[in-house]
Amino acid sequence: MANACKDLRPLIQDALDGELAEGGLRRLEAHAAECRSCAAELAAGRLAVAALAELPAPEPGPGFSAAVARGIAMAEVRRGLARVRLAWAAVVGTCAISALLVAGWRVISPAVLAGAGAWAWDIARSAAPLAEALGEAALTIARGLVPLGGVAAKLSWLGLGWLAVWYALAPAVLLLVVVGTRTGRRVARCPILCA
């Protein structure tokens, strides 16, 4: 293909679209007058466009509009039926799901409740020794404090007051001991101190 052909071939489609400017069209026509190949291409394009526009237009049958109206009526009936079916499906579905939920709950609930009870019992059981140990510790400390309180009461005319103070101090001291121990353990775990 000559250079002129390469340049001008792409213009053929624009020419067929009627979008080629006057100058471009003149160049294309001038080239086609000399180049048989491009002339044939352009002529075939024009022939195609003209033939497409003149293709015989098939007509629908005489009952076309009536058939469309019938089609719409039938589609409306089908849509109505579909809506009724959908409504029924919704009712039946809701009932079925509700029944399944109730039945399922009845079957599962004893096991669930038993499981939850066992779980609560496990917690209580594992917590009980802990609570007991704590109680023992508190009692031991308190027992140790009581004689001291007694001695203090004997040493003072305000013995009863001192006794009350000792008993009030007992939980505070216990708290201090606990907090002190925990802090001590934490400090002991500190990497710098461990190293």
């Binding site: 489609q13 067929l16 679209d17 044939a40 002529a43 075939a44 394009g45 195609a48 033939a51």
Partner: peptide, 22 residues
Amino acid sequence: VKIRIHRGREKLQQMLRPLVST
């Protein structure tokens, strides 16, 4: 759309070329 029209028309052109006398 433009590309499709151009390509479609080119295909038609190829098929109609034997009918064009040069």
